[in-house]
């Protein structure tokens, strides 16, 4: 295991235990890649279409040394990472909403960007809660959704990671999306 992989897994453990600084450190570990990922996709850079999945991979592979890692541990890692992604992002969304309610900075005028962010955070929290409910009725579909939506894994990777057939993974992805859309609309 490389030092980076080790650090990542240690942080992941700390994060699961509820260490609030862990998510920030987790992200700063792969910060530069994530930043590229985030900014390539946020619509600011015109004329550049980025393959999210490819970027995500580049990012993961930085952590998980490709040569040294077995297929099983790679799947294990993707499994952890997709859960972590969801948790980190949803925690962040909740934090933001709470901060806004708490008043925040005295002169913090709610700009358009802030409003958009808050809307995004709210719908993400809703999605998170719905996913918890989905996990009760169809745990496998909820996991498939997590891998694809939050971690950017491809169909095949999702199937491999969760030990499903490709067909099942595809079906459950569709089921999850339809169920969620129905609940939300």
């Amino acid at each position: 295991m490389s030092a980076a992989t080790h650090e990542f897994l240690t942080l992941l453990e700390a994060f699961k235990r509820g260490d609030s600084q862990a998510s920030a450190r987790l992200i700063s570990l792969v910060y530069d890649d994530l930043r590229r990922l985030a900014h390539a996709n946020s619509g600011g850079a015109a004329g550049r279409t980025m393959n999210t999945t490819a970027l995500v991979h580049e990012c993961y592979l930085k952590i998980v040394e490709p040569a040294a890692i077995s297929v099983e541990s790679k799947h294990h890692f993707f499994n952890l990472a997709s859960r972590a992604m969801r948790q980190v992002l949803c925690d962040y969304a909740r934090e933001r909403i709470a901060e806004k309610r708490g008043g925040g900075a005295p002169h913090d005028t709610l700009s358009k960007v802030d409003a958009e962010l808050s809307a995004e955070a709210t719908s993400l929290i809703e999605l998170d809660e719905l996913l918890n409910r989905l996990a009760e009725v169809n745990p496998s579909a909820a996991r498939v959704f997590e891998c694809r939506y939050f971690a950017g894994l491809s169909e095949q990777e999702t199937a491999d990671t969760l030990g499903l057939s490709l067909r099942t993974a595809q079906r459950e992805w569709n089921e999850a999306r339809q169920w969620l859309a129905k609940q939300m609309s």
């Binding site: 994530l34 985030a38 933001r96 995004e120």
Partner: peptide
């Protein structure tokens, strides 16, 4: 696929972590 990573929220999260 990866829609959560395309949002502004993720961008902000990364910036703050940065």
């Amino acid at each position: 696929t990866g829609a959560a990573l395309r949002g502004r929220l993720f961008g902000h999260l990364v910036d703050e972590a940065g």
